[in-house]
Amino acid sequence: MQNLPTYSKLLVIGCSLLSWPLVAEVITDIQPLPALVKQIQQGGHVLYFRHAPTEPKTTDQNRQVVEGGFSVNYNDCSTQRNLSASGREVAADIKKQLQRLRIPIGSVASSPYCRAFDTAKIMFQQVIIDYDLAYSLSKDSAESKRLGDYLAAAIHSAEPLSSNSVFVGHSTNLREGLGVWPKPEGVLVVFKKQGSDIIYKGMIVPDDWQTIADNP
């Protein structure tokens, strides 16, 4: 029974570690756009891109029943809602702006969905597919939550120093994981880890890149 305090401590610590994504607080600290650009130019941030705009009037087709809901066939982009032509342009433009602004880019992880992966490929040179960044909408509540939590944990565990860690994914996952709805397609959401908390610093919508370019 003398061990009880020890066990209790271990239990508390263990629970804290395991449940940190649930307790981790997202502190909103919206930065003005120029300041935000400056901050991401210095690295040390997590940049979450929602995939670029997609073809209207289309949805994912031929959904397969998987554990926790439906999934698309990742290898067959024809059955998915894909980037529209303008969406590809948006992505290419963002790539230019990123390069122009010398925003340092570290690791890039992308959803396996074609529209996300295509966006990432347009923007960045090296992309890793992370299947847990898949679109959570068609999943059941448990799986949807799990994917959200995973994204939150992944953002929290990224340790960018001089560069920024990049995730390319979908709107619903971010909303599930960090309570932030990225809008519209192609938007960049900026986070900064601070201790156990994540600071939400603001979004840069595709149109903002033109503004930034216009006001250097």
Binding site: L137, S138, K139, D140, S141, S144, S171, T172, R175, W181, K183, P184
Partner: peptide, 14 residues
């Protein structure tokens, strides 16, 4: 509004 619609949709999906 996408987010509002998502939240309503999410509920329906669940």
């Amino acid at each position: 509004d996408e987010e509002t619609l998502y939240l309503g949709g999410r509920k329906i999906i669940d």
